[in-house]
Design a protein around this nucleic acid. Structure first.
Length: 479
RNA sequence: UCCCUAGUAGCUCAGUUGGUUAGAGCGGCGGACUGUUAAUCCGUAGGUCGUAGGUUCAAGUCCUACCUGGGGAGCCA
């Protein structure tokens, strides 16, 4: 394949070479005699400067070289006479491939708000910020598969349409081909799902974990990486109705192994981004710093790249829920009544203000909280010997909050069955799951990483809707 | 879903205790300029003030409802 993308041209720097470049015009500036075209093809954050001497080009060509237009420029790569770039293309021929009416094209050569660009999400990848984000997103996807592949994990595609609705991970989207205006009913007036496509009630998956466990109990180390759907009416900067989740599941792992894996994984991914996306990260960092200029000094956050290095290089804090409650209870914040939800003692769920205190104030680094009270966690988490807590773990990041949630799983059949009974999980529909405990059951553990939350952290973006190409949120499903 | 907040030109915003013809910057367009880097300078067009009601002699401004965005909370990844 020809290496004629701008990233290759800028890298090779072959001054004197005759080349043709295709891309989209970011801006055009200049005088009567010469036009400077900033050309970008999305392969890199950097533009190629195309120089067009007016005498060589018809007015009819030049006037269509507006922001957003697709063009092909042919000419010689020369050392730049200007100071912003080392090389530039001295154009001999320019072809207008696709015009962009400057009166109607919504993206202008000026700073736009992220909110406005969200309204034109189909065109926002044409901007420097979004193309940087999506290049980083790609690199992280690649790094995830790399990480697991290097460590003997197998990628398993767990189902997207599922008949299991007992996972308890949130409201589900129904999947059906039944006519909405004329639903078939059973004799007692219920909807008759036997007439539905699958002959039963089906939904979009809220987690691949339970199915993932089946494969971990056969192939030892597996991970899933797929779309996940939650029909929660969540309106926050860190929730989506459709998002991507990575869920490793490992046989013969306990909670400590699980924490080690989570920490190594996150640090690997952040390091990978630093090593492979530095141009884009520098651009995003600069952007963030300009945005923060308006904030008072004490509210500014750590510079992006510095922050990423810090997290990649420093051990996470590990703390039990009980220890965390103790710290919070004795904190000045709590004693002065500064928490909106004061800490009473064991058993209360931690609010995000408490998590933020631990991560952003007390330790100023990622924190892994473990061994939560059984009442506030899922049925499949392994009961600890104290009979009060379960072997759960949440990895908390600054700004993002919970980036990973996981646990050692309950492998003891009787204990699991009694937990399911306590929490009203219908065991008869879950016999396939219980079979892994019945036959060759063993210790195992795993976790779920919210991919977009990771991308948020790495790019420094405040709103999760800006790190997924087509965000799906309550009342919003464009395209 | 709850609390707070906003919606005025293509974009970002200003618009005083309700008062006559609704403003600016950027962007667009036209022109000037011997190489620009968010180019610069001169000129110009562009508005159902989110929607629907209401109060008033008079509403961009006040009230009510709804819609949409943003911030926070809950649910969670």
């Amino acid at each position: 394949m020809k290496k004629n993308q701008i990233i290759d041209i800028l890298k090779s720097g072959q001054v004197g070479a005759e080349i043709t470049v295709k891309g989209w015009v970011r801006t055009r500036r200049g005088s009567k005699n010469v036009s400077f075209i900033a050309l970008n093809d999305g392969s890199t954050i950097n533009n190629l400067q195309v120089v067009a001497d007016a005498e060589n080009f018809a007015e009819e060509i030049l006037k269509h070289i507006n922001t957003g237009a697709a063009i092909a420029a042919t000419g010689k790569l020369v050392e730049s006479a200007g100071s912003g770039q080392s090389v530039e293309l001295q154009a001999e021929k320019i072809e207008i491939i696709g015009k962009a009416d400057p009166d109607k094209y919504p993206i202008q050569p000026k700073r736009h708000t992220l909110e406005f660009l969200r309204d034109v999400a189909h065109l926002r990848p044409r901007t420097a910020t979004y193309s940087a984000i999506f290049r980083i997103r790609h690199k992280l996807i690649f790094a995830i598969h790399n990480f697991f592949n290097e460590r003997g994990f197998y990628n398993i595609h767990t189902p997207i349409v599922t008949s299991s609705d007992a996972e308890g991970a949130g409201e589900m989207f129904r999947v059906t081909t039944l006519p909405m205006n004329d639903l078939p009913k059973t004799e007692d007036g219920e909807i008759d799902y036997s007439e539905d496509f699958f002959g039963k009630s089906t939904n979009l998956t809220v987690s691949g974990q339970l199915e993932g466990e089946l494969f971990a109990m056969a192939m030892s180390r597996i991970y899933t990486f797929g779309p996940t759907f939650r029909a929660e009416n969540s309106n926050t900067s860190r929730h989506l109705a459709e998002f991507w989740m990575i869920e490793p599941e490992v046989a013969f792992f306990d909670l400590n192994d699980n924490m080690d894996l989570a920490e190594e994984f996150l640090q690997y991914l952040i390091r990978y981004a630093l090593d492979n996306c530095i141009d884009d990260l520098q651009f995003l960092s600069k952007r963030l710093q300009e945005e923060e200029k308006n904030k008072p000094a004490d509210q500014r956050s750590m510079e992006l790249i510095e922050k990423l290095k810090f997290v990649a290089d420093n051990e996470f804090v590990r703390l039990t829920y009980t220890e965390a409650i103790d710290i919070l209870k004795n904190s000045k914040q709590n004693k002065k009544g500064k928490f909106q939800y004061p800490i009473e003692g064991f058993g209360t769920d931690l609010q995000s203000e408490h998590e933020r205190y631990l991560v952003e104030k007390k330790f100023q680094k990622p924190v892994i909280l473990t061994d939560y009270p059984k009442e506030i966690k899922a049925f499949y988490m392994r009961m600890n010997d104290d009979n009060q807590t379960v072997a759960a773990m949440d990895v908390l990041f600054p700004q993002i909050g919970e980036i990973i949630g996981g646990s050692q799983r309950e492998e003891r059949l009787e204990v699991l069955e009694s937990r399911m009974a306590e929490m009203n999980i219908p065991a008869d529909e879950m016999q396939w799951y219980l079979d892994t405990r019945r036959f060759g059951g063993c210790q195992h553990a795993g976790f779920g990483l919210g991919f977009e939350r990771l991308v948020q952290f790495v790019t420094g973006m405040g709103n999760i809707r800006d790190v997924i190409p087509f965000p799906r949120t309550p009342k919003n499903c464009e395209f």
